[in-house]
Design a protein around this nucleic acid. Structure first.
Lengths: 352, 352
DNA sequence: GCACAGCCGGAGAGCGCTCTCCGGCAAGAG
DNA sequence: CTCTTGCCGGAGAGCGCTCTCCGGCTGTGC
């Protein structure tokens, strides 16, 4: 250990607690206490220690600390991709979708102030899933936020079995005792149905998302049930995969099969954007000829022309709530399994 | 340690190397060798160990391993936000922008197969920056990808000074010996200029991004220089902040000041979308009255109506390259500082 | 003056892993 | 038969931190 101009160097190594302790003339334990603000340490020593910290430029090694405290200050965001393969473009689609950014933004708004970092994990294979759960049990992350994805994913169950603090965004496909935050998707779809019917639409179709995504199937059932209640027992339906292109294709199919269609509910804004394009292409005016209602109220809704009437999905708020829920659960292992359901609202713009 | 039906339990604790070693009747070191596939271990012991691993359900503790190997299998994605404050909506905007998702998607496409996870970090204050660099020096992450953001950020310099493997996406604002991947933004803007002039536009304006973002200023200089070369010494210019709303406002200003405008280059697609809306609102037809060229070729370009003619910005590829570059640098500390510049291309669609 | 309580700070045992060092043994050379 | 070479596996020292335990000192009550 050499001293140069007040600044202390310890060779190649970064300064450790030991170095600080030696310089301050106290024990490692005392430095640790001071750093972590524990108990009453003699004010004089306190100052001595901080002085030594400053002179060495000491920064605690989080890894070492985590090893013993079993806390990492990290939350994992896992995107469980049980369906697609490595070369499947699915993931590309996923990240490009506003959904991902909105969720990350919502999570970070809460985690950031708490000084917690987010670790992104994509798990596809069985092997990766087991590994992830193993790592989590070891405390690789303090908790995990799971995004709801297609298929009957075994991950939620694995996580609860392992006792890992977890929160899902979007309800699990299978009944699993896991915390989650969701939107009342069926109620949202019902809102769309009410609006289209109130507008006087006679033949209303639906462009649905993949049936194996809970959010998607909830929108389907909610819409159909509400339409039926309004006397529209028959609702033509075509499915897409939540992308703009699929929405455009679905709209064309719908139009070809039902030329007299005068209203359509599209399960997300991106597909609605595609639908709008197809409608214009087919010479239909929106909303005069065909009224269109989207879902999500993403940036795509205001980008559309005419601006989309859509069901608001407060994803950022939901993600923020998920983060808070998770943090509570981490601090209180005995917290009961809970869920928070958000109520959707209809945002009226020009397309319907 | 109790045995129940072939399955071995070690109480509350998760099994450790020690447990496996005891069960297999070998030393900890040997188990470690087997797990990590090191040296020639006697095939019999090898099998014995794997058997014990299976029976205990042993999963290595990454934290403990990282502490000694100084490798974490994690790369940090830092969004250095030196300008905005906690309550500034800037971050919300940032995550919602397709930019973020495209970068993450590109990074993950490479990191995923390498089994590396991505840790998201947002640093704003001086304090957070120091802390981050400290953590990184301790090997909290093996390397870091930095996103280029407004202002003269001290972070790149801090990282290189600390010797942390780092790669920027987008060149640093100040000259810093740091690896980076960038697009020839000026060349891209020149492409747009060439196209608008070739179309016969007589009065061309520009909607620029914030001047303190390198990518943005490069687009401005590239565009103006190329226009000048074509004899258009005068190019009216209004700035936005890369959001759709700002693009819409900018377009209105431009139109008010220059009613005879017949062409406009917009520094990103999102603003171009806004510009399109403003144009339609003002009764101008695109491209007949006013030709519009965007930048990025994001999903917004095809969502627009008419579809945007735009400069392709292969962000996913660039991010993937950044990930590869970083991984190389991590494995070879002596790698010289290098940069990769991508050439833009013009994607002709309907708006110009 | 003595006993007991209370508080502060140090010693040291880990957390779970890797990796160097070294002993032991088998095989081949002289 | 001895010596050398080579390889395999174990012992044990850390990585940098936290935290329990305990000794020692001061203060209070009787």
């Amino acid at each position: 250990m050499t001293t140069t101009g007040g600044r202390v160097r310890v060779g190649e190594r970064l300064p450790t607690l030991e170095d600080v302790a030696r310089l301050a003339g106290v024990s490692r334990a005392t430095v640790s206490r001071v750093i972590n603000g524990i108990r009453n340490v003699d004010p004089q020593l306190h100052e001595l220690v901080w002085d030594a910290v400053g002179r060495t430029g000491y920064v605690p090694n989080r890894l070492a600390r985590s090893l013993v405290t079993r806390r990492t200050g990290t939350i994992a965001l896992v995107v469980s991709d049980s369906e697609s393969h490595d070369d499947d473009p699915f993931m590309g689609r996923f990240f490009a979708d506003p959904y991902f950014g909105r969720v990350v933004g919502g999570l970070m708004s809460v985690l950031r102030t708490a000084g917690i970092q987010l670790a992104l994990q994509i798990v596809g294979t069985e092997d990766q899933r087991t590994r992830l759960v193993g790592d989590l049990r070891h405390g690789q992350a303090d908790g995990v936020v799971v995004l709801s994805l297609p298929g009957h994913d075994p991950l939620p169950r694995m996580l609860t079995d392992a006792g890992v603090p977890a929160v899902m965004i979007g309800r699990p496909a299978d009944p699993v005792p896991i915390n989650y935050v969701d939107l009342a998707n069926d109620a949202g779809a019902a809102l769309a149905a009410d609006h289209l019917v109130a507008r006087g639409c006679q033949l209303v179709g639906m462009i649905a998302g993949p049936a194996d995504v809970p959010a998607s199937s909830d929108r389907i059932t909610g819409f159909r049930r509400s339409m039926a209640r309004h006397g529209h027992g028959w609702v033509p339906q075509v499915s897409g995969n939540f992308t703009q292109e699929s929405g455009e294709a679905a709209m064309r199919t719908l139009l070809a099969d039902h030329p007299h269609l005068d209203g359509v509910f599209v399960a997300n804004d991106l597909m609605a954007l595609g639908a709008l394009l197809a409608l214009r292409d087919e010479g239909r005016t929106v909303p005069a000829d065909v009224a269109v209602v989207g879902f999500d109220d993403s940036s795509a809704a205001t980008a559309a022309d005419p601006a989309l009437t859509t069901v608001r999905h407060p994803l950022e708020d939901m993600a923020a709530e998920a983060a808070r829920l998770l943090m509570t659960r981490i601090d209180d292992p005995d917290m009961r399994v809970s869920s928070v359901i958000y109520e959707p609202t209809l945002i009226k713009r020009r397309s319907a």
